Amino acid sequence: MPDESQDDALAEAGYRAVPDDQGGRAARGWWDANAQEYLDEHGEFLGPADLLWCPEGLRESQARLLGDVRGARVLEIGAGAAQGSRWLRSVAGADAVATDVSAGMLAAAARLDADSGVAVPLVQADARALPFADASFDVVFTAFGALPFVPDAPRVHAEVARVLRPGGRWVFSVTHPLRWAFPDDPGTGGLTATRSYFDRRPYVESAADGRVLYAEYHRTVGDHVADVVGAGFVLDSLLEPEWPAGHERVWGGWGPVRGARLPGTLIVRAHRPPA
């Protein structure tokens, strides 16, 4: 019997075009395999029940990007271990539901539910095909979930528009598109642009047999705006959180050195027009 861990070992990484179906389905397996490692590294910063928008440390308790959600029906897509939904249910008074494509992440969410005593309805689902009725939520959000890992982001926006009620709000955070022109280095090595901002090839990690193990997709600011407007939303605001003084935590390519000079996160707020 072949050694599956050996078969899935990283053999190549870089920016290259891959078939959409291969890149789009890679996220499920990667997050299943890496869910616990991710939470071991970042879980304390994320908290068991808190809505953290970005590595800059902006939290919903400060920003209130979702508005007043008390009593509202809220959907989190790409929820990971559902920390955001858990906070919304336990602190903000929302009726929140969490979805993720990864069974590994949802298993971690169930463990946090048990540890915290806050139960979140958890649904395994691809954000491009949400298993909910039309106009069934007041707010939909994601913090670095779903959108970076699919080649066809307009399908996500279309599904969000479908499940939102008229007047409903859609908020999401992603890696700031400008970052894609720079090396993913939190130090001074990440301050010099080495790629074209307009090169939309995804970052891809592959096994020795060429299978895509991980794919992350780049869209320019203009692409994100066009996707949102194209799905029928009204764009409310674009937010680029500044790196706060005294915040020394490094998370991947995010850290105080780059954060003092380059934006690290883009947060988009939009709403479905009232009927």
Rank of each mutant, 00 (worst) to 15 (best):
Y203S: 05
W243T: 07
A110E: 13
A82R: 04
G93I: 08
D134N: 14
T175M: 12
S102A: 11
A181Q: 04
D152Y: 07
T265F: 12
V123S: 08
D184F: 12
H271S: 13
H224M: 10
S116C: 13
V221Q: 10
C54W: 08
A109L: 05
A82V: 02
N34F: 12
V204T: 02
A82K: 03
F172P: 00
A33H: 14
R269E: 11
D199G: 04
A226F: 04
H157F: 15
E240S: 10
I267D: 07
R258N: 00
S102E: 06
G84E: 01
G264V: 07
A135N: 09
R70L: 03
L46I: 14
A107V: 04
S85L: 03
D21K: 11
D95T: 06
Q36D: 15
P186C: 11
S61G: 09
R179I: 01
T99I: 06
A207N: 02
Y197V: 05
Q6Y: 04
L52D: 03
A207M: 03
P241F: 15
W87L: 05
D95S: 12
S102D: 06
W30H: 15
D209H: 07
F172T: 06
E159Q: 14
I267F: 11
F233I: 03
V221K: 09
A63P: 01
A114K: 12
V221D: 02
M105V: 01
A260V: 06
V118Q: 08
A17D: 13
F198Q: 09
S90L: 07
Y38D: 11
R272H: 03
P2N: 14
V123G: 05
A17N: 07
E242P: 00
A109K: 08
A9L: 10
V118S: 04
E205L: 09
D138T: 03
A193I: 04
T188H: 05
R272Y: 01
W87P: 00
E44G: 08
R70P: 00
E240W: 07
G259F: 01
L178T: 02
A129I: 06
E44C: 09
Y217F: 14
G259M: 02
P177M: 14
V171R: 09
L51Y: 15
L266Y: 10
F182P: 00
A110V: 02
Q124E: 15
G255Q: 02
G80W: 12
V268G: 09
I77A: 06
P244L: 15
A96T: 04
W180Y: 10
A181M: 04
F137T: 02
A275D: 09
P263Q: 15
A275V: 07
F137A: 08
Y203Q: 07
A92I: 00
V163K: 06
P263F: 14
D100V: 06
D20I: 03
G71M: 05
V268Y: 11
W243M: 13
G93D: 08
E60Q: 12
P273M: 08
V174G: 03
D184Y: 04
R155A: 15
